[in-house]
Nucleic acid binder design. Sequence first.
DNA 1: ATGGTGCTTCCAGCAACTGGAAGGTCAAGG
DNA 2: CCTTGACCTTCCAGTTGCTGGAAGCACCAT
Lengths: 134, 134
Amino acid sequence: MNIGEVSKKAALPAKTIRYYEDIGLITPLRDPNGYRCFRDADMHKLAFLGRARTLGFTIEDCRALLALWNDQSRASADVRSIAKEHLAQVEKKISDLQEIRDTLSHLVRECVGDERPDCPILKSLEEFPSREHA
Amino acid sequence: MNIGEVSKKAALPAKTIRYYEDIGLITPLRDPNGYRCFRDADMHKLAFLGRARTLGFTIEDCRALLALWNDQSRASADVRSIAKEHLAQVEKKISDLQEIRDTLSHLVRECVGDERPDCPILKSLEEFPSREHA
DNA sequence: ATGGTGCTTCCAGCAACTGGAAGGTCAAGG
DNA sequence: CCTTGACCTTCCAGTTGCTGGAAGCACCAT
């Protein structure tokens, strides 16, 4: 399989696949003409990577998960701890964003948004030294 | 005021402040010795920037907001539309992350996490070609 | 004079790609 | 046989928003 076909099947841009090879996540063979030659195992890895990435695992997480995936004697606890750690980060990010959303939507609701220069949003950005306590 | 003092007051790293000058968000004066010399107006801008950045506005958003802030004849609608756009992006991100969180927490719950190699998380990453429809 | 801290500039690097240029390869059509 | 066009290759640069570090002045206290 050439990169184009793999790209379609794995739903990953060819550029991304080349990048994954660059950083050592996959090592496809080469045809005599220099074209990358992907086997089913490569496809599987790429599908795995695509899935893990859409779940927001970092590339280094993916590297670790791939290693565990390839390790027949791995303990499932190892995988679980990576996933749990990542889950915690996702939850933190959600709550940070929720706070931001609340502030923003409050500001947007307060702002009439007409032709007058008076703007509560700017006023708030100006007057609210949020990090004073830092 | 030198950069160190401003850095403390605005709760922004000195590196960040220099970076903001580099990209033209602020233009502090210089003392004869070459040191940056910040006036109150610079401080205000930096505080404004810090606040806007903690709310997740991009640098380019900040540039636009600063320009509006400095524009006495601005329409508050202009500010509002930037904030609304950003709010929409934040909300999108929250819901994306919530989906990820749900999937992840489901996986983590399913996984016993013991010494056995059998791992539902890896299995799911393997078997679930999430982007097939792309 | 010496030490320590603070300031300067510039260069490199992070994550995870993405875009584009310059060029080789292959299959089809004339 | 030649051309066209799609596909492949490599390499370099850019993205966002900083951050780290090196090399070298500036300033103040002793």
